Amino acid sequence: MAEVLLFHHSCGLTDGVRAFADELRAAGHVVHTPDLFEGRTFGSIPDGMAYVKQVGFGEIAERGVRAAEELPAELVYAGFSLGVVPAQRLAQTRPGARAAVFLDSALPAEEFGAWPAGVPVQIHAMDKDPFFVDEGDIESAKALVAAADDGELFLYAGDQHLFADSSLPSYNAKAAALVIERVLKFLEGR
C-alpha cells in the first residue's frame, strides 16, 4: 500500500480527478487530494489558467507544497498537468519521496535540481497532445525517465490533454483504464 499525494490540473479538483483517486483507493492505497483552487472548478483549461494567473502561479505551487507539510515524508507524489508542478517539486526536494507519477506534463529536472537517486518516476501522456509535445514536456519527460534509476514514459495514441479525467470532454476511457492499470502496478510495494 502506498500513500499518494495527488494534485489536480488547471480545471480544479474535478469529479474526474476524484474518481481517479478513488480508483487508487479501491486498490488499498491512501490518496490525498488537496484542493489548490479552494473549491473552484473550471470547464476549460483557459478558464482555469486565467484563475491561476489571477492568484499567481507561484501561490498555486506553494499551496501544493503546504499541502504536504502535515503528511508523512514517505509519499508518492502525483499530478495531472498543472499539478505536476508541486508534485515534481516535492519529489525532487522533499526527502523521503517514494516515487512520482506525472500525467500530461513534465518539467525539466533542472527546475528543482537533479532528479533524486532512488526515486522512480512514471509519466503518462498522449503522443500528439499539443501541450505535452509542442511545449517541450515530452523532452523533459524523456530526460526525467533517463535520469531516474527506475523510469517509465507511456505515450498513448491521441491528441487530448487531461485524457484520464472522466469528467472532461477530453476523457479517453480506453487510455485512462490503461493508465490506472499501469499506475497500480507501479504503486505495488511503494
Rank of each mutant, 00 (worst) to 15 (best):
V133E: 07
V133K: 01
V133Y: 02
D134V: 03
D134M: 09
E135G: 00
G136T: 08
D137M: 15
I138N: 05
E139F: 10
E139P: 02
E139H: 11
E139M: 06
S140H: 12
S140D: 08
S140Y: 03
A141M: 01
A141G: 07
A141H: 06
K142D: 03
K142M: 09
A143E: 08
A143Y: 01
L144P: 00
V145T: 07
V145G: 08
V145N: 04
A148H: 02
A148F: 01
D149Y: 02
D149Q: 03
D150V: 09
D150I: 05
D150S: 11
G151N: 05
G151A: 06
E152Q: 11
E152M: 03
E152H: 03
E152C: 04
L153A: 07
L153Q: 06
L153H: 08
L153F: 08
F154Y: 11
F154L: 15
L155N: 08
L155W: 14
Y156L: 04
Y156H: 02
Y156A: 04
A157P: 05
G158N: 06
G158S: 10
G158T: 09
D159H: 08
D159A: 15
Q160W: 04
Q160R: 14
Q160C: 07
H161R: 10
H161L: 08
H161V: 10
H161Q: 09
L162F: 00
L162K: 00
L162C: 14
F163W: 06
A164H: 13
A164L: 07
D165K: 11
D165N: 14
S166R: 15
S167N: 12
S167F: 00
L168H: 07
L168M: 11
